[in-house]
Design a protein around this nucleic acid. Structure first.
Lengths: 191, 191
DNA sequence: GATTCGAATTGATCTACATCAAGGCGCTTA
DNA sequence: TAAGCGCCTTGATGTAGATCAATTCGAATC
């Protein structure tokens, strides 16, 4: 389990042995059942979670409807940057789409890590940069592509999302209603 | 001029004297006339620009129409993260909306800075994090607010954009056509 | 001062997707 | 086995904003 974590981190930034010695004890194992919240709207986010197994999502509520912002699967990290960094109440919630096994580090220990390990600092910078690029790209996709195009790209590029996330969550992620997604799927399956 | 740069950087991360001694010589002064390109689509971005005076924007072309992604004014930094980091040809262009006076550092020197100054590394991490939060927030605004709401928020929160950027660029930034923006402005001025 | 050309406005029409309302289908829980 | 309840689908209608086409305005150039 910890090897999975090490592998995921080293794919971004190589670490020294002493850095692992410092870091690994900070990551605590925890489990969440499907539907449970890793972070609730209005609470300050003070954790970064590594997903060993399962699926989680960030979402927000708007006019009594959930809007999914992003989905996360095994071998990736989930947190709410905005709240984690600003220490302000989160505008977003994180919940388990499937039962989740996590290795989680809290904000205080993360800061210790950044202050005492230059490679973790580099790791943090890279993660933020990649996230930034990813989010910009998603922005552009939303502007440039039609709803059916966005759906087809999701099917092609992120099959895990299609296979493991309920359609109504996918609909809001694509920026459309469940009804619209249903019709798009019908059209696509015809041709 | 260099004091403006120092001030902008120190508002994010304090630096030591030796770090300034290393960094400041890396920043070269340059000027761009309105309409000139700081970065062209298809070229690799290898600069980060600090705007001393003027206004620049990142945009891309889609179906023979420009879509503005963001506007930048004096005392802020402009670059195209995606291309700068991946070293791949940029999907986006950067041009001068007004005549620009810049202090620019190239990618090689930036890497030297990150490798030899822990505070610049922290600075880089923070900038990426703030950018990430800003971009996510913009995403959400696009989904949650109607076009008139987005327009009114821009008027209120970023008057510089309204005062110094042509309307057709603002329209594409808001995700609508110039015609739609014109009608929204008429409606708003009535009430 | 006349000319020009892009920017902005205005009007008429079209369309993608939302909204509202009603079923059906498949899980869970008893 | 049945009851109940989300989830997904389907149909009818509504609407925000796009598109197309034509002026008008305004700043730069000669």
């Amino acid at each position: 389990m910890y090897n999975r974590l090490k592998g995921a981190i080293e794919s971004v930034q190589k670490m020294e042995a002493h850095e692992w010695a410092l870091a690994l004890p900070f990551f605590e194992y925890q489990e969440f059942k499907k539907g449970e919240h890793l972070l609730q709207t209005g609470k300050v986010c003070n954790k970064v979670h590594f997903i060993v197994e399962g699926c989680a999502r960030i979402y927000f509520s708007h006019e009594s409807r959930d809007v999914s912002r992003q989905f996360f699967f095994e071998d990736s990290f989930v947190t709410e940057f905005g709240s984690l960094i600003s220490k302000q109440p989160s505008l977003y919630a994180i919940d388990a789409v499937e039962d989740c096994k996590l290795l989680s580090i809290n904000a205080e220990n993360l800061d210790i890590l950044y202050d005492n390990s230059i490679n973790f600092l580099k790791f943090g910078k890279r993660i933020a940069e990649y996230t930034c690029i990813f989010v910009v790209n998603r922005n552009v996709e939303m502007v440039v592509r039609s709803a059916p195009e966005r759906y087809l790209r999701l099917v092609k590029e992120r099959p895990k999302v299609m296979n493991r996330v309920p359609l109504h969550m996918i609909a809001s992620y694509l920026g459309i209603t469940p009804e619209a997604l249903s019709r798009i799927r019908k059209d696509v399956s015809k041709s």
